[in-house]
Amino acid sequence: MTQARASLPYRPPAPDPDELVCWPADFGTRFTLFCDVEEEFDWRASLSRDGWSTTAMSAFPDAHRRFAGLDMPLACMVDYAVAADPTAADYLASVRDDPRCAIGAQLHPWVTPPFEEAVTPFNSYAGNLPPSLEAAKIATLTDTIATRFGRPPVAYRAGRYGIGPDTLSVLAALGYRLDTSVRAAYDYRADGGPDFRAIGSSAYRRDRVIELPFTTVHTGMLRGRGASLYRRAAGFPHGPGVLVRLGLVQRVSLTPEDMPLRAALEAVTVAVGEGTRLLTFSFHSPSLAPGHTPYVRDAADLAAFWRWWDAMAERLVRLGVRSASLNEILNAAG
């Protein structure tokens, strides 16, 4: 069995100023929406190569119509379990045929061959795997998506944000143009994942690939020092929660999954006011059907999920923030 890397958690360095993407003036202020299209599994249990299904994919065509009605084109980051299942993949036909949507790739290494590693939390971050094994899994995923959907993906996301030191060079060699495996300001070292605390939400270029982090916004009275205050508070029991209750700092990602609507609306307003040019939103496809994620447990949660998106679409229109398809982003980035 292949051994994983024995190294410190990966800490990608903050981009140099000359690595940052300079968006053209006519690009305006935009947003894009990524969906992690994946199998459903028990989020409370240990990861496994077995015991998953893809039944929630049946909800995808209706979801695509609803997002299209909100002018929210989807960048669908499809993992191997869905791409290898003809029935599950067929539910993405409307997305494949929508010129404003895109099919990208998402790597869940524990369900993607070749299977040479033990299934552990550490190995679930693909960037922790030996370089040759990570590259082989990405190649398998890429080929499967290209065969199933008729074109190779050009955008990639490592499941669990599990990017590693060799990931971008592998992607560049396979023809990928954009990676979205970084979650700005988050730290996954607790079970062996990467540390993104040095990375902000701005897009940058590295190893011939555009890195587009998942947007993180600090809100509250002390938001100007939000990242450093949050890091310090995280070292104390309930520290971040105390900051939130006092209205000092809240760390917000742009997703309806465990992010309250009021906080997300404030975060978008703050980000636009501070000059952020491209906001990135995200959610998991199993949340489109009740009972598959801790975020959408029943019909009431699903209704709240859609209210979140309706209200967010209204706020984006009010702020003058337009949607951006993956192709529009790549063209604007040059």
Rank of each mutant, 00 (worst) to 15 (best):
Y188P: 00
S228Q: 14
A45M: 09
A185K: 12
Y80S: 01
A311T: 13
A264G: 13
L33M: 12
T280P: 02
T269I: 04
E39G: 00
E266K: 14
W110F: 15
G247Y: 04
A75K: 09
L279E: 03
C76F: 03
R49E: 11
Y91A: 09
T180W: 02
G247E: 07
P113G: 12
P17F: 02
D98K: 08
L212Q: 13
R208M: 11
R231G: 12
H218L: 12
G239V: 07
R66V: 08
L212A: 13
P290R: 05
G273P: 06
W110A: 08
A184N: 06
V170C: 12
R197H: 08
P165V: 10
T167P: 00
V268F: 00
P131Y: 06
I138T: 10
L74G: 00
R277E: 13
T219R: 07
L8I: 10
T167A: 02
E134P: 03
S253M: 14
A146N: 03
R183D: 10
R189E: 14
R297F: 00
V82S: 01
P9T: 03
S169E: 14
P15M: 10
A155V: 15
T142R: 13
W43P: 01
E257N: 06
A25S: 13
M221T: 13
D79L: 11
A203L: 10
E19I: 03
S325Q: 05
L107A: 04
P152I: 00
E266R: 15
T2R: 14
A271H: 05
R5Y: 11
P24H: 04
A155D: 05
A300P: 01
G69I: 05
R148A: 14
G241A: 09
P130I: 04
Y295S: 15
